[in-house]
Amino acid sequence: MKQLTQLLAAALLALSPLALMAGPNHDHHHDKLEMMKKKLELTDSQYTAIKEIMSSAKAEAKPFKTSLHDLKKQLHNTMKQDTVDEAKVKSLTAEMAEHKAELMMLHKRTKASVNQQLTAEQQEKMAKFKEKRKHKRHKKHAMKGHH
């Protein structure tokens, strides 16, 4: 039973970042791109290139996200059974982990492609914004007593 609990915990951890990536009816990429355009003073050609990169990445990620959604449903249904099929749980969680790894690699490739569109000065500004956001998140997290 302990092993089954660990598998379920691993599956839930594997999915948690995905929930943040794709909310219903919310285009995170558009909002992020608009922020970049304003804060980094992107040229029209940079904006267009980055928009294409993000659009392509979103399309490439869609099948993985759809599959992960289906796998999560299957896992949930498997866990509701009176007798849990541990082999099936392991198989589903392993497949979920593979899809998550693919999405993480896609994210890294997309980030690198976007970065190539920026000037050195814009890259520096972006790094500062990210550091500031990271600091705010840690501060907020610490204030909640989760530090």
Rank of each mutant, 00 (worst) to 15 (best):
L13W: 10
A22Q: 07
L103D: 01
Q116T: 13
I50K: 03
T110C: 02
M79V: 09
K108S: 03
T66D: 06
A120Y: 02
A101T: 13
H69D: 03
L42W: 07
K72R: 14
S56F: 08
D44F: 02
S16E: 11
K62W: 02
K37D: 11
T43I: 10
T66K: 05
H107E: 06
V114I: 15
A14H: 01
M105E: 11
K88E: 07
A57D: 05
M104T: 12
H28K: 14
V114P: 03
K32P: 03
K80V: 08
D31F: 13
T83C: 06
L118I: 02
A101K: 15
K38W: 08
A101V: 04
L33Y: 03
K88C: 05
M96C: 04
E41N: 14
M96A: 11
A57S: 09
V89E: 01
A14L: 07
D82Q: 10
L8M: 13
K100T: 13
K32I: 10
L92N: 00
S67D: 11
T83S: 09
L106Y: 00
L75F: 00
A94K: 08
V114F: 03
Q116D: 15
H28D: 07
Y47A: 06
Q123F: 03
L68G: 05
H26Q: 14
N115F: 06
K37Q: 15
Q116I: 10
H29W: 01
P24F: 00
I50V: 12
D31S: 12
A94T: 14
L33K: 03
M104G: 07
K32G: 09
M35A: 14
S113Q: 15
K80Y: 04
F129I: 15
Q123E: 04
T119Y: 05
T78D: 03
M105F: 08
F64C: 09
A9P: 04
A11G: 09
E124G: 04
K62M: 11
L106N: 08
H30T: 15
R109F: 01
R109M: 05
N115V: 06
N115P: 06
H29N: 12
Q74C: 03
K73P: 04
S45N: 14
K32M: 14
M21Y: 04
K111N: 07
Q81S: 12
N115A: 14
K51T: 10
A127F: 01
E98M: 07
T83D: 09
D82I: 04
E121M: 07
A101N: 06
A61V: 01
K38G: 07
K125E: 04
E98L: 12
Q116H: 15
Y47N: 12
M104H: 12
D31I: 14
I53H: 05
K65R: 10
T110Q: 02
F129G: 01
K72L: 08
M54K: 13
E121F: 07
T43H: 02
H99F: 02
A22M: 08
L92R: 01
M105C: 06
A9V: 08
R109G: 03
H107M: 11
M36A: 09
L8S: 12
N25G: 00
L75M: 03
L42P: 04
P17S: 02
F64H: 15
R109Q: 14
K65Q: 09
A19L: 13
Q117F: 00
H26M: 05
M54Y: 00
Y47I: 10
I50P: 02
H99S: 04
M104S: 12
M36N: 04
